[in-house]
Design a binder for these strands. Structure first.
Lengths: 210, 210
DNA sequence: ACGCTATCAGACAGATCTGTCTACGGCAAG
DNA sequence: CTTGCCGTAGACAGATCTGTCTGATAGCGT
């Protein structure tokens, strides 16, 4: 053992530069690569081998952190949930303190997302399209949508809408529509349409019974 | 050759009942099976072998009509386009002769689709989620959405909307949102929400400048 | 200096998927 | 009757994908 060790240490023939990752960071690199490839190519199209190769980690390391591909997919969806929720909240708060303004302002996050290069729609909707209902992936998508809907409902209540439930349902629908259309129309016009439609719905709802 | 022919003819040991399909119907059976499996499982999850087995045709027959899987997928999308467009037109016409009523009535097709067992959202959106932009599948999806949008725009013009383009964009957005949400919410409530939202948008648009 | 742990490198197995190929059977038109 | 077309049955090749396993290396705390 020590014989090989000494020989390798001096020549470094077999492993020129293993260049190992600092420590414990392999998981982050894998997740970052998965985030990119899963979104760009789809869950099935992005293979484990490709993710491993582009992450620059060893196969054993990968399977240590993610025993099955499904585990990586779930982790990917968790990350997407966090990022997208954060962007929505930031856009809403940037619109000002008025909940009514925030209900419209959150659609700015949609416009920003649509403009981003490589935009491919809602990661959750895309994931659900590849996963039969009843699977963990599908359930996670439903949970995400429920979470967003609940947040919008809270805003509608705070805004003092006479029928907050109905307004929130409409706005969530428009948000999903904007996410789905943006990738097909190609231009970010659909995001603007979504924002305008939302503004109209909020205005009508609040102006109906002030 | 003739020796084998005679032997087989008398005993029919190797092929008890070939039970061949009437004639030219093999293609229809394949397409019907593909329609079901592609929609239920997704484009990648539904394998050629499964489609062939469930169609009850031979492999060579399959590849005669569809030299590649992509060809079958395109044929599937053509069929979906025809079916869905037909349902939308039927629902619109069932709402009466008034274009304004038709703009709202077409959303009844959405409710009917959501209620159907095994509803999995818009086949085109799902297909696009599995196909990178630039592929034939993705392009076909864009073409489908453009076709639907153009039809809605025509209806908005006929209805005499002051800004038909904007109304049509909003309605197309709501329709896509209803298609995307219906599969996640689980209940057909989102279809009802879509219809109500559409009615509100049409009413506001037409009532603004009559 | 030693051992522990995380990592790297890559061979390997087993399944699955797409697409090709051979061989044969029935039916209808010439 | 023969010929061509359409169909069945299934073996086969080649690629790809998921997941397992072996063996060696680097850093870090003791």
């Amino acid at each position: 053992m020590s014989v090989y060790h000494g020989a390798m240490k001096s020549t470094a023939l077999r492993t020129p530069q293993p260049a190992r990752t600092p420590a414990g960071r392999a998981k982050d690199k894998i997740l970052a690569t998965a985030f990119r490839l899963f979104y760009a190519q789809g869950l099935r199209a992005a293979g484990i081998d490709t993710i491993i190769a582009e992450s620059g980690v060893a196969k054993a390391t990968f399977y240590k952190y993610f025993p099955a591909k499904d585990d990586l997919i779930l982790a990917y969806l968790e990350k997407v949930d966090g990022v997208w929720t954060g962007q929505l909240h930031a856009a809403a708060e940037a619109a000002g303190p008025d909940p009514a303004d925030q209900l419209v302002g959150l659609f700015d996050a949609l416009a920003t997302a649509c403009r981003r290069d490589g935009y491919r729609g809602c990661a959750f909707i895309n994931a659900a399209a590849e996963s039969p209902s009843g699977t963990r992936v599908h359930d996670r998508t439903v949970a995400h949508k429920k979470k967003i809907s609940a947040w919008i409902r809270d805003l509608a209540v705070q805004a003092g809408a006479p029928e907050p439930e109905q307004l929130a349902r409409s706005l969530a629908l428009v948000l999903d529509g904007g996410l789905a259309s943006g990738v097909l129309d190609g231009d970010p016009a659909s995001a603007l349409t979504a924002r305008n439609t939302a503004a109209q719905l909020v205005s009508v709802s609040l102006g109906a019974k002030p």
